[in-house]
Amino acid sequence: MFGLPWRRTRRGPYGFARVGAWNSKVLGAVLARQCYEAGLAGPGVTLPEEPEWVGLRGCLCRQADLESPWLHHWCGAIGMVPFYHRKVWEAAFIAQAIWEAGLLAPGQRALGFAVGQEAMPGFLATHGMEVLATDLDPRDPRAARWAATGQHGATRAAAPAGLAFRPVDMARIPRDLHGRFDLVWSMCALEHLGSIRAGGTFILNAMRCLKPGGLAVHTTEFDLDAEGPPLARGGTVLFQARDIEALQRRLGRAGHEMLPVDLDPGAGLLDQFVDQPPYGEADRWPLSRPAETPHLRVLVEERIATSIGLIIRAKR
């Protein structure tokens, strides 16, 4: 019928496995759409004008957060729609942590790593913060993959007052940045440093950029299987529970404090849905990619991953 993919062979480009994955994306989109129509999230939800204190700690991305007033507020403030997407959650998590720490205020100094095209630098600058946004030098060969997809920070539009850009390699933070900032942050970047160990080392080194008692907020990829084989090396690595515990110990030995981390994955229906490729490659498939497919959990090399947020206080 109409040349649809299930008429191809199992070995063809539209084999049964991929059709099954596509069907799950369509069903997930239906579930998300029902939640949007119920007013739980999405483009029609009310966005509170004032932030709400929730006592945020480290945690995983969960459906309940994306349906919560605190997250909806930051979507309105940053200019996002509260879709069921872990990147929306990450931005709101960082903003909530900064606000609860009392740092979203004029005169506070912030340093962002591997900012790409994220909205956080401009958002912080509009609140009067002095923001230094960094990314790889565009001449660095490693920057090519990000520049090719329009995700590199050097291609950012004109910056608002209070926002400056500087090329910085996360693996080699310059000494002249040490001790100058009230806040450092990164959003889903440290998992691309080549290994779990390198990601943790970046977090430790970034703490040197903070003033005594300063705040660090990071989001990264997290493997929901605590006992499975690790994805500890490669272009994208996944932190497991034991890696977070080891990082907490490393930070403690350096005199820093990681706030407690809640690894509860959530009990929502969309917390159980795992998005699968293709994500942005809809042009490679003869059907239209369902735009509402939830993206709280994702398949990464046969592992189920989500986003985790970490909040760390520098030693005083």
Score class of each variant (00 low, 15 high):
residue 285 W to S: 05
residue 300 V to Y: 13
residue 281 E to C: 02
residue 271 D to E: 01
residue 252 G to H: 11
residue 249 R to V: 13
residue 251 L to M: 04
residue 297 R to I: 06
residue 300 V to G: 00
residue 268 G to V: 03
residue 280 G to P: 00
residue 264 D to N: 15
residue 295 H to M: 09
residue 270 L to G: 04
residue 266 G to K: 05
residue 303 R to D: 01
residue 296 L to E: 02
residue 273 F to D: 08
residue 267 A to I: 04
residue 250 R to T: 09
residue 284 R to Y: 10
residue 263 L to W: 04
residue 282 A to H: 09
residue 298 V to S: 09
residue 262 D to C: 12
residue 295 H to N: 14
residue 268 G to Y: 07
residue 274 V to Q: 06
residue 270 L to D: 02
residue 290 P to R: 08
residue 261 V to D: 08
residue 291 A to Q: 13
residue 253 R to Y: 04
residue 281 E to S: 14
residue 248 Q to G: 15
residue 302 E to W: 07
residue 285 W to I: 05
residue 253 R to S: 04
residue 251 L to Q: 09
residue 270 L to R: 05
residue 269 L to Y: 02
residue 270 L to H: 04
residue 268 G to M: 08
residue 286 P to H: 06
residue 263 L to A: 03
residue 296 L to H: 03
residue 257 E to M: 08
residue 280 G to S: 09
residue 293 T to W: 03
residue 286 P to T: 03
residue 278 P to L: 12
residue 291 A to W: 14
residue 265 P to T: 06
residue 301 E to T: 07
residue 287 L to G: 01
residue 249 R to C: 08
residue 278 P to Y: 07
residue 298 V to C: 06
residue 256 H to Y: 12
residue 286 P to A: 03
residue 272 Q to D: 03
residue 288 S to V: 14
residue 302 E to S: 15
residue 279 Y to F: 13
residue 280 G to H: 10
residue 304 I to N: 06
residue 286 P to Q: 06
residue 249 R to I: 10
residue 302 E to K: 14
residue 272 Q to M: 05
residue 291 A to F: 14
residue 291 A to G: 01
residue 289 R to F: 12
residue 304 I to D: 12
residue 292 E to S: 15
residue 300 V to A: 06
residue 288 S to H: 09
residue 296 L to K: 00
residue 286 P to W: 02
residue 289 R to H: 11
residue 271 D to H: 03
residue 259 L to E: 05
residue 295 H to L: 11
residue 272 Q to H: 04
residue 298 V to F: 13
residue 302 E to H: 14
residue 268 G to A: 10
residue 254 A to T: 00
residue 250 R to H: 12
residue 249 R to A: 13
residue 253 R to L: 14
residue 285 W to G: 02
residue 252 G to D: 09
residue 269 L to C: 06
residue 285 W to L: 06
residue 259 L to D: 11
residue 276 Q to D: 08
residue 299 L to H: 07
residue 256 H to E: 12
residue 261 V to L: 01
residue 258 M to I: 05
residue 262 D to P: 08
residue 294 P to E: 03
residue 304 I to V: 15
residue 259 L to A: 15
residue 288 S to D: 11
residue 303 R to N: 07
residue 254 A to S: 08
